[in-house]
Simulated scan of single mutants.
Amino acid sequence: MTLVAPALRRSSGKIGAEMTTEIRANTVLPARRESITLHTADGLNLIGELSLPPEGEPKATLVLLHPLPTHGGMMDSHLYRKAAWRLPALAGVAVLRFNTRGTASEAGRSEGEFDNGDGERFDVAAALEYAEFHDLPNVWLVGWSFGTDLALVHGCDPLVRGLFLISPPLRWSKPEHLETWAKSGKPVYCLVPEHDDNLQPEEAGRRFAAIPQAKVIPVAGGKHLLVGYAEEALDQLVAAVVPDVPTPLPRTWDGPSTTHQVTIVS
């Protein structure tokens, strides 16, 4: 396990003066977006969306596992909707996000009921099967809060190239799950807020020492939900998954864009 400072590479891209707009929380950049349905091995249909770069093949694929649905987590949770709205255009990656069983968002409600991370193993498998069947390249699992436990417990699949964890609580993950990832040799990045109520950087460094290749990245000043830190989180995600893309990512966009205000579904 390595504890690393959150330094980033500077972007050399230039943004034109015409049609340049600031990228805000509700800005939606161009992408090829498609509503999808994932089918689980235990017979459920899950609501999802695949966002592809506006042109060309994706450099990588991010499969997003959302925070705890009993506390408002869903595919529209703020980091994940911003990832889907920005990263296909800014980083050339595909973003697959979906609602785990029993979870609702503006796009709809997935079938089934929340199962405390157990039955959700079928949900993780369904997302990875979709990515494999559709030949999506360079698949990375991205977990946030509850989603990090789903990734650690159920996600060490041969298809998965690496793991990016955001605010990991290590609530359901046990030493044997960390050992599985350690043996895999796959890269594991852990973005840990300084003031997280569940797991802070120093303790994360001790816990993730069980995975020698894991890198803990502190977020100075951040709390568990990383409100106000979306740009830093997305920069770190892109730097880990597609290191050839300069970061920080642009904060403005030269070209067409739209805005969308998400309806929060309880």
Rank of each mutant, 00 (worst) to 15 (best):
Q200I: 08
P187M: 04
K186Q: 10
A214C: 07
H195W: 10
T180M: 13
N198F: 15
L199G: 04
A210K: 13
I211R: 02
L191Y: 06
V192C: 11
C190L: 04
G205M: 13
S184P: 12
G205Q: 09
P212G: 01
E194G: 13
L199F: 06
L191P: 08
K215T: 02
L199N: 04
K183P: 00
Q200V: 09
C190Q: 07
A182D: 05
A182G: 04
I211F: 03
I211M: 03
Y189H: 06
S184F: 05
T180Q: 13
L199K: 14
E202L: 12
Y189W: 14
K183D: 11
T180I: 04
V216N: 06
A182I: 07
H195V: 00
Q200E: 14
D196N: 05
L191T: 02
A204C: 08
F208V: 00
D197I: 14
C190T: 14
E202N: 11
Q200N: 08
L199S: 08
A204W: 07
W181D: 01
R206F: 10
P212F: 04
Q213S: 13
W181S: 12
P201A: 13
D197Y: 12
P212L: 01
Y189S: 05
L199I: 03
E194L: 07
T180W: 01
A204E: 09
P201C: 13
G205L: 06
T180P: 00
Q213T: 06
F208K: 02
D197C: 10
R207P: 01
K215R: 14
D196F: 02
Y189N: 09
A210Q: 15
D197S: 08
G205H: 10
K183W: 00
K215M: 04
H195P: 00
D197P: 14
T180V: 12
T180A: 15
E203R: 14
N198W: 15
E203D: 10
A214D: 03
R207K: 15
R206P: 00
G205N: 01
H195C: 03
P201N: 14
V188F: 01
P201L: 06
E194A: 06
E194V: 07
V188E: 03
R207F: 08
L191I: 15
Y189M: 10
K183V: 03
P187D: 13
L199T: 10
Q200C: 07
N198G: 12
V192K: 10
T180G: 12
I211D: 00
I211T: 00
V192A: 10
R206Q: 15
L191M: 15
W181M: 00
G185T: 03
A204H: 11
P187S: 10
D196Y: 01
A214V: 06
A210L: 11
T180L: 12
H195A: 13
T180S: 14
Q213E: 10
Y189L: 12
A210Y: 00
V188K: 06
K215A: 06
V192Q: 05
Q200T: 14
G185H: 09
P187N: 07
N198H: 15
K215Y: 01
L191H: 04
D196Q: 05
A214N: 04
K215N: 04
V216M: 03
S184E: 13
D196W: 03
Q200K: 15
F208H: 03
T180E: 12
V188Y: 07
I211K: 04
A182E: 08
A210G: 06
D196R: 13
K215W: 00
A210M: 14
R207T: 01
Q213Y: 08
V188H: 07
Y189Q: 15
N198D: 10
